[in-house]
Nucleic acid binder design. Structure first.
Length: 289
DNA sequence: GTGATTTGACCAGA
DNA sequence: TCTGGTCAAATCAC
């Protein structure tokens, strides 16, 4: 079973991480490098295998029932997971690209399909959206945006979009013409300290108050994440692609166990067929080796 | 006291 | 001129 192969690869990687962790203080640099390489290769292989698996699953899903996938959003570069209870059907597609004046940044046409409806966020390159003096204003067709749809929490504070592992500071809220709900503006808490240009806009969908449209602008340069990630939404970059979707889970152990590291006390959701399927942690006694 | 949020005002692009 | 994005003072929370 491919899923089990992937899982065993992941668990093997985690085991390597734990081994490295326990021997870290006395580890010589050469040995450290070797271990890191082995860990990276293990997770990389697992990641490649997982992508192939996801592709197969998506193909089979389209032929079967498309109403309740665990994977909310799948692009060629990323996958989005949500709590099973919050699942809605999304797909995320990224269209054509071209190069910016610097020749390095792509211009994206982002489309989100929600229940058959396609929402489009036109995007382009145009530099960071950070502020300066005099106040810089962003043209509608420039700037690098990443738009995702996020299910609202149905318990607790449903006014807030689920945590995306970054700390944000709200700096404005606006009533938007034609929208029932106001749009909230956030910037990175560390904007001043690290000159971090990351911002995001959060707005409820008119026809689905339990869904937020979250638009990220600018990438985080602070690399500081909240210390108490939730599992509500996990956006995991599955390749080395550098786009920051605001949920910078940079390795699989982090994605699975949270930023507090292997052994953090949390369940995790894995994007396989069964939404209720949760895998045991390594230290629960059953070693998947 | 410090940092976050609220909210009216300001400003620039369309 | 309208609208969306940002500023900044006031207020709140810890």
């Amino acid at each position: 079973m491919d899923q089990e192969v992937v899982m065993s690869m992941i668990f093997h990687g985690i085991k390597l991480v734990k081994t490295l962790e326990s021997s870290l203080p006395e580890k010589p640099p050469e040995s450290l490098s070797t271990s890191l390489g082995e860990i990276a290769k293990t997770f990389g292989d697992a990641n490649e295998r997982l992508k192939m698996l996801l592709l197969e699953m998506r193909n089979s899903e389209t032929a079967l029932n498309q109403t309740k996938p665990v994977i909310v959003s799948v692009s060629n570069q990323m996958l989005v997971q949500m709590e099973p209870g919050l699942m809605q059907e999304y797909s995320f597609r990224r269209g054509g690209s071209s190069t910016s004046s610097q020749g390095t940044e792509a211009i994206f046409q982002t489309q989100l399909m929600v229940g058959g409806r396609i929402l489009t966020a036109a995007e382009g390159s145009g530099g960071a959206s950070g502020s300066s003096t005099p106040r810089l204003r962003r043209r509608k067709d420039e700037g690098e945006d990443q738009t995702v749809l996020v299910a609202a929490l149905r318990t607790g504070n449903t006014d807030m979009p689920p945590d995306d592992n970054h700390t944000w500071r709200k700096y404005g809220q606006k009533e938007i013409l034609g929208s029932r709900f106001p749009r909230a503006y956030y910037r990175c808490t560390h904007q001043k300290l690290y000159n971090c240009p990351a911002k995001k806009q959060v707005q409820r969908l008119d026809d689905d108050p339990f869904t937020f449209r979250v638009t990220y602008r600018g990438s985080h340069t602070c690399h500081i994440y909240s210390t108490a990630p939730t599992t509500s939404v996990t956006v995991a970059a599955t390749t080395g692609h550098s786009i920051d979707y605001g949920s910078p889970i940079h390795d699989m152990t982090d994605a699975m166990f949270g930023s507090s590291g292997v052994g953090a006390n949390m369940d995790f959701i894995f994007p396989f067929n069964d939404p209720t399927q949760r895998f045991r942690r390594l230290d629960d006694g059953d070693d998947h080796q």
